[in-house]
Design a protein around this nucleic acid. Structure first.
Lengths: 193, 193
DNA sequence: TTTATAGTCTAAACATATTAGTTTTGAGTG
DNA sequence: CACTCAAAACTAATATGTTTAGACTATAAA
């Protein structure tokens, strides 16, 4: 009779993160996670509500941790400096967690309050970085969407292996982010006079 | 004895496209496609090499058709005008095929010549639109990566439902693309003097 | 008319997910 | 210290999906 493992939710999520980052998000199955924890599949149901529940925990972890990293990066900085730091942290998260990152694309279920909150907090960090520029509501929204598009577009293509080899991707990212900060400074990214 | 259906690869792919765009890429299974074609699952193996094969055909179709649309949009135009038209066509493809679009993220397998070719042709269209700007090799690559990031980032977030409601997304996209074209004009996006 | 083949099918094996119900550990209580 | 009991593991059974093997049949070509 084998002794109890007394696995908790945190271990389950941590294992799912490992599987995702080693073998891709599609490799995160109840079977692969259970095998790695050396327990049977049904035992996972003590911790998560099936595969959808496991995915939800993974998405929640991703949103919360990405938000933490972005907050840490941008706190105490302002303007171009804050955006730059945010951009570096964003890309670093995606490169550290190439398998987990893509799950952040999924919009949260409206009935999942915790997930909605994490999603909103993540978004709020981006708002906070751009708010000091003094945009009106509409311009701020457009600028936030632009920044999110730029960051997500680059790191998503990069982690998916979508860029050709041979030229420095750091340099590409720097120029892309600078394009955004320059646009902000040069003509306020749509700011009304 | 039921009469033969004589389904061909094109019908299989078309059905997969329908399933993807109606119910999402994850809903594209041999089971769902076979059911829609009113044949048994094993019969699909006459047309595609299992589920990986079906996904590959879908990815090939996506790359070829996106390339067609982009080519059609940018041919006969130059400079900002060509970029603008390309951007509109890119987003239109994603919105017309929200379920198929995400499969374009996947980098092609190096041993799949047809897929590699489609991927390269797609990339070449973006190069063609930016080449007249007269960049050196490195600058051109950075600019192409930037344009791809901008287009993919926005469109991917939009089709994933990642943008908040209530403000005009067309306007957001226009401003984002204009940011890129302005950057090209104002300081050549890294062009050496 | 015959034959070859392409396309369909059934059957069976395997993997994953899920539910139901059982067992066991070990932590807290009397 | 012994008991209880809830949490966490388990086995078993079912459903859905993928894959392979092999048989059948309609049709097009010889």
């Amino acid at each position: 009779m084998p002794p109890k493992k007394h696995i908790d939710l945190q271990q389950v999520v941590q294992t799912a993160i490992e599987v995702a980052d080693e073998n891709g998000l599609e490799a995160v199955t109840l079977a692969s996670v259970a095998a790695r924890l050396d327990i049977r599949i049904p035992s996972l149901y003590n911790h998560v509500e099936g595969l959808p529940g496991l995915r939800r925990e993974l998405a929640l972890w991703a949103a919360q941790n990405l938000a933490d990293e972005l907050r840490r990066a941008s706190v105490g900085r302002a303007g171009k400096d804050a955006i730059w730091s945010l951009a570096i942290a964003y890309r670093k998260f995606a490169r550290t967690h190439p398998g987990v990152y893509p799950i952040t694309r999924k919009a949260p279920e409206a009935d999942d309050a915790e997930m909605m909150k994490a999603s909103e907090e993540l978004l709020e960090i981006v708002y906070a970085v751009l708010r000091p520029y003094g945009f009106n509501d509409a311009d701020l929204i457009h600028a936030v969407r632009a920044l999110r598009s730029v960051l997500h577009g680059f790191v998503d293509l990069e982690t998916a292996g979508g860029f050709e080899m041979g030229y420095d991707r750091d340099e590409s990212y720097e120029r892309l982010v600078r394009m955004f900060t320059d646009a902000l400074e040069l003509h306020g990214y749509g700011k009304q006079p």
